[in-house]
């Protein structure tokens, strides 16, 4: 079985819509990811490639943060025709798991936040992480969330504060999508308020 660019990508898109409109809702991309050809992956996970295939074309630009940034960029460019560019100009920033520590913060700081007239010209940041699960750690609030949601992200970066700083002037800001090694997807649009959920002792 190979990936059907019409139906399988439609299914990925619907899961993106579900997860973005309900932050904290973790979507499972295992079924679609299993269909991605091994040879296309080249250093980037199948689920990240799925997102690129769903949203990228010649009209958008992207930037990859990884030890193998060049080869991954080349693969994505060849598959989607999207243009690799620098972080400050990119519509999509991809932080792979092998990226140097600090890459995510760097990406958040440099990413386009849009303008007050055109806040939609901001960047999406896709982040590969070890695991994304529902559970204690981060408390989410905001549109799309009934009261609160709890998520746990296995990630060794100080991104919550950087994101908060970047998104302080709503509607300017960045939208983030986390995807883990088991192809679980979490979306955190700029409207989501995150606080670290500390156990009261």
């Amino acid at each position: 079985m190979t990936l059907d660019i019409v139906h399988d990508l439609q299914s990925v898109y619907r899961k993106l819509v579900d997860s973005t409109s309900r932050p904290g809702l973790i979507s499972d991309l295992r079924k679609e990811a299993a269909l991605v050809e091994e040879e296309d992956q080249k250093g980037c996970s199948a689920s990240l490639l799925l997102l690129a295939l769903t949203l990228f074309d010649q009209e958008v630009s992207f930037k990859v943060f990884s030890k193998q940034a060049d080869s991954v960029s080349k693969t994505i460019n060849q598959l989607t025709y999207a243009k690799p560019t620098e972080a400050k100009k990119a519509d999509f920033l991809l932080i792979l798991q092998d990226a140097e520590k600090g890459s995510l913060e760097e990406a958040i700081i440099n990413a386009k936040a849009g303008t007050l007239k055109n806040p939609h010209t901001s960047a999406f940041i896709f982040v590969e992480v070890e695991s994304v699960t529902n559970g204690e750690a981060l408390l989410l609030k905001g549109p799309g969330i009934h009261s609160t949601e709890l998520v746990h992200l296995d990630i060794n970066e100080n991104w919550v504060e950087s994101r908060q700083e970047k998104n302080k002037e709503y509607p300017l800001g960045i939208d983030m999508i986390f995807i883990d090694q088991h192809h679980q997807l979490l979306s955190l649009p700029r409207t989501t308020q995150i606080s670290r959920n500390r156990v009261m002792g």
């Binding site: 973005t20 074309d57 649009p189």
Partner: peptide, 12 residues
């Protein structure tokens, strides 16, 4: 193209 616009619309 419509999908990208829709995701931004949901985010704002």
């Amino acid at each position: 193209e419509i999908r990208r616009a829709t995701l931004k619309a949901i985010a704002i």
